[in-house]
Design a protein around this nucleic acid. Sequence first.
DNA 1: CATGAATGAGTCTTCATTCAT
DNA 2: GATGAATGAAGACTCATTCAT
Lengths: 207, 207, 207, 207
Amino acid sequence: MENQSLPRREREKLRQRQEILTATLLLFSKKGYHNVSMREIAAKAEFAIGTLYKFFRNKEELYKALILEQADRFHEAVTEAIGGNADEIDKLRTFIRVKGEIFRSNMTTIRLYFAETRGASLNVMAGLDLEIRERHRNFLLSLASVFEHGMQQKHFRPIAAPFHLAVALDSMTNAFLSLWLEDPQRYPYPEEPDTILNILLEGLVNP
Amino acid sequence: MENQSLPRREREKLRQRQEILTATLLLFSKKGYHNVSMREIAAKAEFAIGTLYKFFRNKEELYKALILEQADRFHEAVTEAIGGNADEIDKLRTFIRVKGEIFRSNMTTIRLYFAETRGASLNVMAGLDLEIRERHRNFLLSLASVFEHGMQQKHFRPIAAPFHLAVALDSMTNAFLSLWLEDPQRYPYPEEPDTILNILLEGLVNP
Amino acid sequence: MENQSLPRREREKLRQRQEILTATLLLFSKKGYHNVSMREIAAKAEFAIGTLYKFFRNKEELYKALILEQADRFHEAVTEAIGGNADEIDKLRTFIRVKGEIFRSNMTTIRLYFAETRGASLNVMAGLDLEIRERHRNFLLSLASVFEHGMQQKHFRPIAAPFHLAVALDSMTNAFLSLWLEDPQRYPYPEEPDTILNILLEGLVNP
Amino acid sequence: MENQSLPRREREKLRQRQEILTATLLLFSKKGYHNVSMREIAAKAEFAIGTLYKFFRNKEELYKALILEQADRFHEAVTEAIGGNADEIDKLRTFIRVKGEIFRSNMTTIRLYFAETRGASLNVMAGLDLEIRERHRNFLLSLASVFEHGMQQKHFRPIAAPFHLAVALDSMTNAFLSLWLEDPQRYPYPEEPDTILNILLEGLVNP
DNA sequence: CATGAATGAGTCTTCATTCAT
DNA sequence: GATGAATGAAGACTCATTCAT
């Protein structure tokens, strides 16, 4: 992702920044923001404490950067999943599948993300929350336009506003993935994302 | 709720305990567990610090008590909403409405509740989390049995497992209420809970 | 010891005072002054905290009273041991034996006593120390007069000042009893007090 | 005592450690362990509180280190005093003199030492006590072997077990030094250690 | 430029003491 | 007079942040 045309010095700095963020993610997601010390992060990242402060003004800033980076990654991926020219239903199916894959391969990140998007943000700071919500909202709008387009194409019945449908679908995937996160054995996230789709579509598709 | 036949001394103690919990709820939900000091709580509750420790062994215990009390209140209310002998669809409608009302009159509590049920708990402690999840799961089972009964009565088509439907409905109400929480103006939680019901039922009801 | 002619009310008070002191002795000698709380003492003595303060102005005063009472008991007993008309050597022998008996039957007290007489007093307060030293000094003077008398009677050679001899004898009994306190098995305090007497009386150098 | 070939950084650390210990010794010996706060120590040592914790894990550890260091110093010195090839009586005389000198130049330390070796240890911790007793016992054994050797050489009559004689001599020096500590004017510790030696060596009984 | 030693404000918690009942 | 609930000062300890080397 890093621009390879940057001067070597700059590229090096970006790499170090990444290393710090990686170590931080590991620690924060395992123990929580308040239970991780800068010393601990420095040790894990194999930098001096002072160096951390060269990259991030303070602990909060480091946290913000971490969350935003992860949120970006996440929203990019799901947004891409519903892009392209595929059939609307395929797009929804792809979305569910891709989101599931991201969860499965980023449980660590996800825990942190949930912690942020669901109120915990109150604990740390308000500003961050806004930026995350912004990204989330943008994604919901993209998803809504899939529904909208489907309606225009008469594939979908207008049982609710497109945005509401987007919110509904997004929340259902969250809920099922949340169950899976709790107990992957008991609640396997559908290999085929059909359960969720069924619930949403069974009444939605125009007969 | 407090037993009025308790000796006066006991009633007084319960009242004080409640005052502490109320002050704590306000502070925790506004600033988060780690950003509130016992001194602050004592000041808000208008008790001496030492008095706090008469009621709660330590800060964590106070937090636990607070969360559990609120969760109980919440789950009792929504469980009651789907009890009784009403028609299944009416029960779902009542659930959505009641949950909305609870949210609207307990925003403070809700913020804290979400913080707990959605990952932030990682930050504070594991034990509490389990008890909350247990309550949540119990409610989901009750809700599932509403769907199951509806299927047995042939009011509902078996488009998905009852428990999955319960999860879906619960998550949708959360999502819409979450939007409303963010911006009550922009996202009014449906006075009539029909949007959510529509999404869920439009395909669910047996034609 | 309590004057039976005191009004009943007074006698009762004295008895309560004793009960407090007994409980306190047990706790202080087991855990040390600073590791015992007034609440703990009140519980052990089965009085209310406030009642403790009726008898002793504060924790320190309670401590002082306790130590002084024990010291008095102790010094009375050893002083009595060297009183009477017996032969000087018998008096010394009796002293050693009696002191041993007191130790053996009051280990609890003794630990506290040592803690006080040997520097720990620094920890708690200076005033107490003085009163104890006074008693100790008085006893040493009594003991010295035994030596002095023995010299006058020509039973003893004037190898050192009587007071110095008293100090020497007292310190030796302390040392041997201290060993015994540490490990009663390994260092049995002489049934017959002859070891200590030998050292003092025999004369070590080979003629 | 510090290895001068250590890297400068290490030497500096050792020096700081010593400064902390020195300040701590002063405060503890004057006011006692429980009446000295870490804040106070930090102020006296002219370090930040946090710095104290870089050197000692907690207050107890600091105390332990202090006591053990002083005890080592003390026992080394007295053990050395009875080493070498001198005549046994000379060794005893040297011991008495050297111990006196140590006392005189380390009153502060001594107060703390006594506090530990004589019961006060109950108050703070058990582990430390053991290590000190161990050192003390080792010294007594060395001293005992002086008596034993003296007996083998027929300089001493076997009036008591060598170990008992060691205990006796040690306790007498303690007692006389303790008097001196109380009131240096009234009880000058014998310039020439002859009083104590006399008592021990002369033989008290008139032949 | 990187380092990590030093800092000290701020945290939770205990407990001697008071005083309304 | 007895009680023990309430008080809040004070203590040990942590950790984000700075800055001399």
